[in-house]
Design a protein around this nucleic acid. Sequence first.
DNA 1: CCGAATCCGCAGTGATACTG
DNA 2: CAGTATCACTGCGGATTCGG
Lengths: 215, 215
Amino acid sequence: MTNRDFGQYCGLARALELVGERWTMLIVRDLLAGPRRFTDLLDGLPGIPTNVLSTRLKELEASGIVERQVAPSPQRGVLYAMTEMGEALQPAIITLAVWGNSQLGEPRPGEFVPATTVAMTMRATFDSTAAEGLTATWELRAPDLIVHAQVIDGALRTGDGPAPVKPDLVMTFKPDDLPTFRALIQAAKGGLVELEGRQRLLATFLRIFAPKQAA
Amino acid sequence: MTNRDFGQYCGLARALELVGERWTMLIVRDLLAGPRRFTDLLDGLPGIPTNVLSTRLKELEASGIVERQVAPSPQRGVLYAMTEMGEALQPAIITLAVWGNSQLGEPRPGEFVPATTVAMTMRATFDSTAAEGLTATWELRAPDLIVHAQVIDGALRTGDGPAPVKPDLVMTFKPDDLPTFRALIQAAKGGLVELEGRQRLLATFLRIFAPKQAA
DNA sequence: CCGAATCCGCAGTGATACTG
DNA sequence: CAGTATCACTGCGGATTCGG
């Protein structure tokens, strides 16, 4: 609980005091994809001990980055969600992830692609000028992966799981390799995807998620 | 030495495996301000144990982020410097620092402002369009702080310590509070600065280091 | 002096078990 | 479902020592 400080009046040092501990930024990544419950986070972060997740969530809540919510009616229990201050972390997380993407190399044995990573990559590669004025919803499916992208008047919302509204186009992939967003884009370009809905939105999808350098 | 992995094929996770351990990003921040030796890093990071610094530098070198150099003739010994791959970390470091700046609040007792932080903040606030075609060198001095900014045909190089060439303008501050870049800018705007050199370059300085939201 | 290696005590982490 | 409790372990902080 006692966050070890760095003793420096420096933005970077302060950021690292708040989100620099082990697992913390991965929790932030997952919560940036939408609110979720304790066990959802556990599932998305295999290897994290429950006490560490518990501690991290308390620290993040104490810092005002995350807030606990009582889940709305149909479900029940506790939801963790980013605050506005936490949402402000997104550019930093994405920029770091873009650098990390350039260092990824081949997947190591046993590594998997979290759905929240795909959602984050979509946000990183989104071309807001190409999407100006657009409104549409996609749902992407692959083995062990469902994510959605919702563009409302040019503004993007992305998350894992099924789309919160009926998607305009459902894209179903059966990739040979890991379902990275890059692999999905390649498959889509090659026509290796099953479409369900407004098929013309495939081209739109490929246009607004044009990886600059970030895929 | 055995970097604990996260088991995820994700850019963010990989980035954190490479530079996510305690102290590592602060070392990167300091090296982004220019090559320096082991003891320079120790001085700039009070509290870091020597064995930890040693270990981090080895890890960073093994990852190809940092390289050891034999110091050029006048000095001697070992210099640590960023590789090209390491330089690519700068946008990520800066973006994280910008968020951290918004969380800084008042300085805590005993906190100080590292010179490399000021250099980084200058890079974060630099307005490259406002500096187009410009060439000039500044040196900023305050108690316990010397940094420089070198603009060559619109391109910025910043670092701590005296300017590598004779500066066109030397700005000497005597701030009451901590010498953050924001405080220096305020002092400069208020005329609370002693100038030595081409005085007109003060206005130029204030124009190209216009903090958007990053100060 | 520079650039570490070594040793020790402890806090943070990982794994498992258990509870409201 | 949402955590807490326990305990072994490893990485970190602090100090000292050591070779170029």
